[in-house]
Design a protein around this nucleic acid. Sequence first.
DNA 1: AAAATCTACAACCGCACGAGA
DNA 2: GTCTCGTGCGGTTGTAGATTT
Length: 313
Amino acid sequence: MGRIPCCEKDNVKRGQWTPEEDNKLSSYIAQHGTRNWRLIPKNAGLQRCGKSCRLRWTNYLRPDLKHGQFSDSEEQTIVKLHSVFGNRWSLIAAQLPGRTDNDVKNHWNTKLKKKLSGMGIDPVTHKPFSHLMAEIATTLSPPQAAHLAEAALGCFKDEVLHLLTKKPVNYQGQHSAATLGNNITDYFNCKPEEKDDSVSKAIQQEPEMIPTYRPWDSTATTSASFMMPYSVFPTMPGFQFSPASPWSQSMCTGSTCTGTAMDQQSHQLHEKLEEENGDDSEATKEIRNLSNIFNSDCVMWDLPADDLINPMV
DNA sequence: AAAATCTACAACCGCACGAGA
DNA sequence: GTCTCGTGCGGTTGTAGATTT
């Protein structure tokens, strides 16, 4: 025997709320409050389930709710808190005045999750994909690790193509990230039967390039040029993970991350970009944006307790 | 201009839990 | 202790509008 339903489903309206229904509900609650949701639709003259009324009120009609786009600081807060609490939307929303758990959840699922993925960060663990792969790879034999790397490459295909095509990489070096980018593009474009060899060839052709390339190097022009290699090829022979890419400064929780050194690198990168491209260039803005969103104080344990609107357990 | 696809967000569903009888 | 009820919560679905093809 299950629970009795909260209302008779045959007699209730479902779907979008009309302005008239909103008015009825709002004016009833203004007069009588929100006690006993089961009785509210009946007394307010609404053919709605009490639960539906409660959701409409809490997620949309409440006068203290904030409608509209999330600010950068709100997004930062969500990412910070999600890295600690996971999908505890109500906990996260409690720190954002005027936002509901539904708002936060929707924003996460539609925007922030993709944003993190596009930056090479696993939205579940908040670690760079490269760290996760490196961790997994330590338990695998070299052939298995190579297969894993290629499988991951396939997963990142869209993001990689976006990064590589959004801003043309313009670097005149034989051993460049751009060269690697071309090899990656070749990999995606080649026939399936050729793919087994293409990645390893790409790496073998540029073995000394990957560990020595630095984003603040004067030949670097875009974020795409250095984000890719570090995020996709950590398990490749001769490759050492560098925490220099913007997102790694805050989001990586591994032992390889050293905040002070990375702050300096980040600062150098900003200066370099501004010097080369101008303060308002798209590339500079993009780097600054990425760094600002996930700067070094973005981890939850760096948040001063006083900053929290509602105390956490 | 029309169809297809994508995006954002509102709404629903079912489960869990606490309070009170 | 247990049953019912009200509510909170997170996952999922539906859909309107925007964008792309």
